[in-house]
Amino acid sequence: MISTKRKACIWTMRLLTACSVVLTCGLALFLIGYVLASGLPHVTWTFLSSSPSILSDRIGILPDILNTVYIILATLLIVLPLGAGAAVYLTEYASSQRLVSVIEYAAETLSGIPSIIYGLAGMLLFAGTFGTSLLAGALTLVIMNLPTILRTTQESLKTVPQSYREGALGLGAGKWRTIRTVVLPGCMDGILTGCILSTGRILGESAALLFTAGAAHKLFGFFDGLMNQGATLTVALYFYAKESGEFDIAFAIAAILMLLTLAINFAAALAGWRFKKRRAL
């Protein structure tokens, strides 16, 4: 019934598809296996809990870990109100379709800009004012993550049933009160998803931080840290690998980053799954 030529064609496509899938999965497996195998043996407690010291010939990444945490916290603290607020404006207030499409177009543009451009813009905009510091880095990342938070919050706001808003308005609440007490609590899961995605992106970011946050490895508290230069884990990895050729340390950091990436992917999947489940109710 089916000619040999057709059969050959079908089997070729099937074979090529299978090869592609195996290649994709194989790459992911190889990367994670290779990085963990070469990195984990070098991860020790001293490595995680001390700062580097030339005097005692010790290399530790505690400052880099803290810098990463500080920059994630600072970025999220600033970007959450901005991004979520913009999303609220777009879905709840905006009446002019043209303005909505301008803002959405701007968000699309932002999400397409590569991180090295953000790095330069951040250097011009923020590092000039605040000096090269974690704060300048965080502000750069705020612009970068704005579209992510905006989009996830907006999607979540759209799924809050219209009847909730009508109910609140019908009971005499003003628009702001409705948003504050009914709409925003209803879209918390979207904001949470946005936070997880942004955390992942900040964790992996390096090009945007190279010229804004600097490359120091000193221990600071949160506020002092923000005002000073500091390398995040990725930037530290880059310098250890490219500038000083210390591949054991680079791989140890890479292994830690890999585990964190896995954890974030898992959290994102979990949040997405709960999100879906709640919507299905």
Binding site: C25, A28, L31, V35, L237, N265
Partner: peptide, 22 residues
């Protein structure tokens, strides 16, 4: 499983790709 692998590839920091490439 395949989607998890793809998400992992998406999440790996670019410096890690660089390191393994190097």
């Amino acid at each position: 499983v395949v989607e998890a692998a793809v998400s992992l590839l998406a999440g790996i920091p670019s410096v890690v790709y660089g390191l393994v490439g190097m």
